[in-house]
Design a protein around this nucleic acid. Structure first.
Lengths: 226, 226
DNA sequence: GCCGCATGTCGCAAGACTGTCGCAGGTAGG
DNA sequence: CCTACCTGCGACAGTCTTGCGACATGCGGC
């Protein structure tokens, strides 16, 4: 079954990234740049989840949340730049089901969307196994195991590894990783990825200088051993 | 068997939080914002439990309780902002089976609902065992045992521990705990959880500085030892 | 072999994250 | 009224994370 996600966000760059990520996950994506537009489209199209930015031109995102809640039970996730907990709490009180603050980790946002969807649509097929050679990822505990022993990795390292292993040996470009993991406009240039790969190798490879698991594909990007 | 819970509450934010928590517990949720609506839906749908707010627009919650009691034996739990014991006593006399005052601890409300359900549907499968290493939770008595000895913990500490142990080793984010335990509006942001964890550790860990049961997962949240 | 570019390597510093603790208002019980 | 406790809050310090830049290295084409 194809699910529809509605994005209400005025910043073109962020909306773009969200759309790309959502489409990659197989969702149909609807977009709106204002609260008014969003309200109409939601009622028209009955999406399965709505992402709402708080800072919108004109009507504030909060009011949009309240309006939506008044007429619909669609799961609402607030995506806001306000780290100010004020807006966030107000958002939840207004009836949102979850919130994510920018800069967000795109993979995490996707996971949260899945969670909201699960509520409205029962049990999907089990989580994908995240295993590659001696490396094993446990999303439940956010732990990475290597041959049975735990390897401490940071939040972002975890998500990058998850993305790579999930790709099952396919090459992923730096851009792809930037968009999927870092998520958005993170103008941060390419080397960030290189760095992270370097650090990951130091943690999961026997000989980080001669990687056997996390391979470089010159000119394209990185991939896990098949 | 899927149980149905009816929520009669006019405040959108609170109703939302209740719905989220109830659905997470696996209940089907019906909502009404007025007594009239509630009465109709209850007779229509025969829910297994009804939550009633006392302050409702129009007909008062108390009258709704009386009306319900006149025609049904469905367990009724009053959820009220009135700490004023007046209304509460009146509510119980009107035929309610239990009451919870706001701000309530979400997990506690869920527990009370289970209790009411147990009455109407006798032998379910036993309660989930809330045990983790030397720690043992007794929901009936709200006691925490550690290696056979009782550890005094506060109300909220108890529910946080219950949530964590119930998660069986999975990581729970601060957000998750805030919503599941504190339940709502608790404008209080982040550090509240950290503090509570700190206090819990002082009570249940041998060496609180090097926790072995209640673990931190940096960047994600907390979890119990598997 | 030489050059240019892609990638590896590493240290740094800002800032994020968490642990720790004292304080104060609130509540319950006496 | 007093006391004890619960609970949220803020401050501070220590640790870890992470983007960045600089330089080294290696690959591929000529």
């Amino acid at each position: 079954m194809i699910r529809t996600v509605m994005v209400v966000e005025d910043d073109d760059a962020i909306r773009m990234v969200l759309r790309t990520n959502l489409e990659d996950e197989g969702y149909r994506v609807l977009e709106a740049t204002t609260a008014e537009q969003g309200l109409v489209i939601v009622q028209d199209e009955q999406p399965d989840v709505v992402l709402v930015d708080l800072r919108l031109p004109g009507i504030h995102g909060l009011d949009l949340v309240r309006s939506l809640r008044a007429t619909s039970q669609v799961p609402i996730i607030i995506v806001t730049a306000q780290t100010d907990s004020h807006d966030v709490v107000a958002g939840l009180e207004a009836g949102a089901d979850d919130y994510v603050t920018k800069p967000f980790v795109a993979k995490e946002l996707m996971a949260r969307i899945r969670t909201q969807l699960r509520r409205s649509a029962p049990p999907e097929e089990g989580e994908e196994e995240l295993v590659c050679g001696p490396i094993e990822l446990h999303p439940d505990t956010a732990e990475v195991m290597r041959g049975g022993e735990q390897v401490p990795v940071s939040r972002i390292e975890f998500f990058v590894l998850a993305e790579l292993i999930g790709a099952k040996g396919r090459v992923l470009s730096r851009d792809h990783l930037l968009r999927k993991v870092w998520g958005y406009g993170n103008a941060g240039d390419g080397r960030v990825v290189d760095n992270l790969i370097y650090r990951l190798r130091n943690k999961i490879e026997d000989d980080p200088a001669n990687p056997e698991l996390l391979l470089t594909v010159r000119g394209f990007g990185y991939r896990m051993k098949a």
